[in-house]
Nucleic acid binder design. Structure first.
Length: 274
DNA sequence: AACCAGGGTGATG
DNA sequence: CATCACCATGGT
C-alpha cells in the first residue's frame, strides 16, 4: 500500500533531490513529470521530493520505511552544521553554496560495488543505462512499482556467460562476474566490511579482479557509510590540482567523503563550465 | 615505470 | 559525421 514518510531536516535548503540523486553517487533515480524523483534503492522503490524542512517519501514498503529511507537519505545528520564547518575553507565554501542541497546517500553495499565497477572509464549517462538494463534483465520485481530491485550476487553468479552481452558493458563484465562469484561464495563478506579497520576493508574489496582503490573507496563511502573515505576520480583530481596544490585540509578528514561529494558536483559544474 | 587496450556511447563541433 | 572523453584497472 502506498504511504508517505516525512523525514524532518534542520533547514529547508538541506535537501535537493536533483543535486543529491544526480551528482554521481546513485544511478537509479530519475525526475518525474509531476516534479518528484523516483527510483529504486536496493529492493525498495520510492518517489521523493523536498518539502520545506523535510524530505517527503512515497513508497510501497511493507514496513520499516521511515527507518530505511531515513538512513538512506542520511536524515539523522545535521548538514547545516557540517556545511558551516566546510565553509571555513574558501573553496569548499563555494562548493557548498553551489550544491547546498546535496546529501551523502547510504546505499546498499552490493549495489554500490557493482555500480562503481560499471562506472570505470565511463560517463554517467552510460553508467545509468547499463545499470538499468542489468536490473531490468536480472533483478527481482518490486510489486506495485513496475520496477525491479538490484540483482543478488547469487543471481549474477549463476548467469551463463552470454547473458551478460545485453548489458554492452564491455570489459567490465569480467569484473562483475568475479565480484558476484566471490561474494556469493562467501570469499568476501560485504556485511563484515563495516566492522573492519578502513585499510583492511579496502584491501578486502581490492581482492576482487577489477576493483582498485577508487572503486573500493566509492564502495566504502557510498555503500558502507565510511565518511572518512575520499575517492579520487578524474574530477576530484582536477579540483585538487587546481585548488588544493598543498593537499586537502586535514581538519576535514573525518567527513572528507561528504566534502568530496560537494567538490565533485562543484568541479563538474564550475571547472568545465558545464 | 610509462604506456595501452578494454567497448561503447553521449556530447561536441 | 569524426572525434573526444568518460567517477579505472590490469597487463605489457
Amino acid at each position: 500500500m502506498l504511504h508517505r514518510v516525512r523525514l524532518p531536516l534542520a533547514a529547508a535548503g538541506d535537501f535537493d533531490p536533483a543535486q543529491t540523486l544526480d551528482c554521481g553517487q546513485a544511478f537509479r533515480f530519475t525526475p518525474t513529470a509531476d516534479g518528484w524523483w523516483e527510483g529504486v534503492a536496493g529492493q525498495r522503490y520510492c518517489k521523493v521530493r523536498g518539502q520545506g524542512a523535510a524530505i517527503e517519501v512515497d513508497c510501497f514498503c511493507g514496513g520499516g520505511c521511515a527507518a530505511h529511507w531515513g538512513d538512506y537519505f542520511d536524515a539523522g545528520r545535521d548538514y547545516g552544521t557540517l556545511k558551516q564547518e566546510y565553509s571555513t575553507d574558501p573553496v569548499l565554501e563555494k562548493a557548498v553554496r553551489h550544491g547546498a542541497g546535496i546529501r551523502l546517500l547510504h546505499q546498499d553495499t552490493w549495489e554500490t560495488l557493482c555500480s562503481f565497477i560499471i562506472s570505470q572509464n565511463n560517463h554517467i549517462a552510460r553508467i545509468k543505462g547499463i545499470i538499468r538494463t542489468l536490473c531490468d534483465s536480472f533483478g527481482p520485481p518490486i510489486p506495485g512499482s513496475g520496477m525491479r530491485g538490484f540483482p543478488a550476487p547469487e543471481t549474477l553468479a549463476a548467469l551463463p556467460v552470454d547473458s551478460w552481452d545485453v548489458l554492452r558493458a564491455g570489459f567490465r563484465v569480467k569484473y562483475l562476474r568475479d565480484a558476484a562469484e566471490k561474494v556469493s561464495r562467501g570469499q568476501l563478506d560485504l556485511a563484515g566490511l563495516r566492522a573492519l579497520p578502513l585499510e583492511d576493508a579496502r584491501q578486502a574489496l581490492m581482492q576482487i579482479y577489477g576493483v582498485g582503490p577508487k572503486v573500493a573507496d566509492c564502495t566504502l563511502l557510498f555503500g558502507c557509510a565510511r565518511m572518512e573515505c575520499f575517492p579520487r576520480d578524474v574530477w576530484i583530481k582536477r579540483v585538487l590540482a587546481e585548488y588544493y596544490p598543498g593537499g586537502f585540509p586535514e581538519r576535514f578528514a573525518g567527513t572528507a567523503g561528504i566534502a568530496q561529494q560537494y567538490l565533485f558536483h562543484y568541479g563538474r559544474g564550475a571547472l568545465v563550465e558545464k
